[in-house]
Simulated assay, not measured.
Amino acid sequence: MSDHPPTVSAPQRAPERPLIDVRNLTVRYSISRTGQTLTAVENVNLTIEAGEFVTVLGPSGCGKTTVMNVIAGLVRATEGEVLVDGVPVDGPSPDRAVVFQDYALLPWRTVFDNVRFGVEMQKQYRGVDMHDKVQETIEIVGLKGFEKSYPRELSGGMQQRVGLARALVGGPRVLLMDEPLGAVDALTREVMRAELERIIQATGSTVVFITHSIEEAILLGDRIVVFKSHPGSVLEVHETNMSRPRSERGAQGDPRYIELRDHLWAALEREATDAVRARA
């Protein structure tokens, strides 16, 4: 008889589910003028973990925004589904906030009131004094002292900060950003990238960030998702594997940055060339 105790297998831990799970997503639109059906995206599969910053690249018209809008609950899937924390998305939710390129601020409202608008329509905050939370969020995005200013009195970068604060004030788990820095100048864009990285680290939000800039995708993303078009689908996904914080000047000497930049340029160039040939 053996003196050794019997070996007992450790219980298997169930794998943690991703925060966002895009499963076999297809979206089609009917074009009433022609009677044709347009497939915007087809069989898209993607998972995003809680706390990840995922950047999305691809040529215009490849369906990036369509996928983001399905996650936001603004567009319905034709086939497949999107789950957030295991629950199928069937409409908008305060847990998912959207930041658009054009700011979409209310010109008759001050900075403070524009940010407060982010919680005014949410049932859980009705009757709750949100003054301190609004003020705290304004300070997080670096706009302390501008609470009483109107959008027309702000620069483009400052207006984008207001839009970001309005999205963050309700404490969403997911922040969906569609080319949010596309309308600002190059210098402001670089400053805003660094600020955005700081803000996201402070809030712990999970981010899906659409951009046409390869450099921006690398500098901000934990992972980069590259889309192809006609119809839109995921072409490839890359881990950035670079330490934070990141700056464009600091990253230019990083071999990983150079490797990713060159690869992504080549992949998108091939995709653009193939798209032109397909239309010829």
Rank of each mutant, 00 (worst) to 15 (best):
V134L: 13
G142Q: 09
R109T: 04
E120C: 01
P180T: 06
L83Y: 01
E179R: 06
F146I: 03
Y103E: 05
I138C: 12
V128T: 15
K133V: 13
E81D: 13
P172F: 05
G91I: 00
D113L: 00
R126H: 15
G80R: 03
G145W: 03
L175M: 04
Y150G: 03
P180K: 05
L143C: 03
A77V: 03
L83E: 05
G142V: 03
V169C: 08
D85F: 05
M121Y: 13
S93I: 00
V82G: 05
M130G: 07
A77F: 02
V98D: 08
P151A: 11
R126C: 00
K144C: 00
Q122M: 08
E79P: 03
V134P: 08
G142D: 07
P151H: 07
D132M: 01
L83P: 01
K144R: 13
E139K: 11
V87L: 12
M130P: 07
L106F: 15
T110H: 04
Q135M: 14
E153L: 02
G145L: 03
R109K: 14
P94G: 10
Q160N: 07
L168I: 12
N114D: 10
Q159E: 14
Y125I: 02
L154E: 08
Q122Y: 04
Q159K: 15
L143D: 12
G86N: 13
V169S: 02
D132T: 05
R166D: 09
G156E: 08
D85Y: 01
G118C: 01
L105I: 09
A167C: 06
V89C: 05
M130R: 06
L105H: 04
E153H: 01
P151N: 12
L168Y: 04
V119L: 13
R109E: 06
R96N: 11
A167K: 07
V174D: 13
V141R: 00
H131E: 14
P92Q: 10
T137S: 09
D132W: 00
G118A: 09
R161I: 11
D95E: 15
V84C: 08
G145Y: 03
F100E: 12
T137E: 12
H131S: 14
L175E: 10
G91Q: 12
K123N: 10
A97I: 04
S93W: 05
V169W: 10
A77K: 07
Y125C: 06
P94Q: 11
D90V: 06
G91M: 04
L83S: 02
Q159P: 02
T78Y: 10
V134E: 13
D129L: 08
G118M: 03
G171W: 09
R161A: 07
Q159F: 01
Q160T: 03
R152D: 12
E139C: 04
L154Y: 08
G86R: 07
K148D: 15
F100C: 09
